[in-house]
Write a protein that binds this DNA or RNA. Sequence first.
DNA 1: AATTTATGTCAGCCATGTTGACTTTTTCGT
DNA 2: ACGAAAAAGTCAACATGGCTGACATAAATT
Lengths: 183, 183
Amino acid sequence: MADINSLMDPAPPSAATVDEDTAVALPLVDFIELLFFAYRDFVGDPDQILAPIGFGRAHHRVVHFVNRHPGMRVTDLLDILRITKQSLGRVLRELVDEGFVESRAGASDRRQRLLFPTAKGEALARQFVGLQSRRMATALEASGPDGREAVQRFLIAMIDPEDRAAVERLIERADRAARARPA
Amino acid sequence: MADINSLMDPAPPSAATVDEDTAVALPLVDFIELLFFAYRDFVGDPDQILAPIGFGRAHHRVVHFVNRHPGMRVTDLLDILRITKQSLGRVLRELVDEGFVESRAGASDRRQRLLFPTAKGEALARQFVGLQSRRMATALEASGPDGREAVQRFLIAMIDPEDRAAVERLIERADRAARARPA
DNA sequence: AATTTATGTCAGCCATGTTGACTTTTTCGT
DNA sequence: ACGAAAAAGTCAACATGGCTGACATAAATT
């Protein structure tokens, strides 16, 4: 009887679950922990795909954003990821070398390197989005009838106020571009 | 005019924001990105506190969980953090050496090392929770009248199904213990 | 008494972050 | 037209926090 008093053991004798009828509102600290666990599993999804091809989570993030916002500049990616250009450079070089991403000089400003996914990169990104969308879709359904809007407002409000507008614009622009270029 | 075509620039001429009256439901991929940005800023909060004392995010996680679940075993912490005992060991040793955490042998099973925060550790954890609670409280308010419940269901459903029960029990147990031992 | 469990530790490696310094190309401001 | 500034890339060195593998100890279980 190894973990009879484990904090993580399979099931309690007959303890009430958190979302019981009688449940009171969760303390804030519970939401902090729920977010930790939710994100832990959320970013764990792509690992199965990444491991076989010898990539890590940094590669995932780059492939995702380049695919979702094709033609973005290196600087944009740095702003999003909040890492140094040296860190990004390493990962980006590997992705370019192995044919997942390609960079072309900007038309109006030729100092810029605009990043595009290759067909291979798109395929990989689709795998990531597929996995994470499945989890996300299920969770949004579980959130209830108006849950989608509530979760949207929640997530936006979790972002630093000074970054919110930029993020909303980034996403809106990507959606518009995606509608204009239907797969 | 550096970033006139930047993806992250301050403000668009007069573009509609995402949550306009006319807005359609966001695609799933937008939620994926919102969660990324939300979490990025959420875990950035503690950095200001950590940097001066020479700790990193790994220390934050350990201090948080030990404080929130005092008396937890090393194994429990490993299950929560999903890292190896060697990785945890390094961080834990520093926290014990610098007097933030202390470990006592278990009463019933003396092989176990039960982890407790010291007064210093509690104070540090309170700082973390304070910062992150403020962000969380604001975001939950922004989520709308029934947002809290929706977000709760959302976050729980984002967790791997096989872990959900354990997480809910962990949190419920901590809440009960906290109510029994009011600060 | 033998085995298993919980923990800890050493050694080395890997992924991914950091700073600082410097270069090249191109654009912008005056 | 010239000098400053911007966008990007690169080298070197280092820090953090993951990992594997091997092994040690104490206590509990069988």
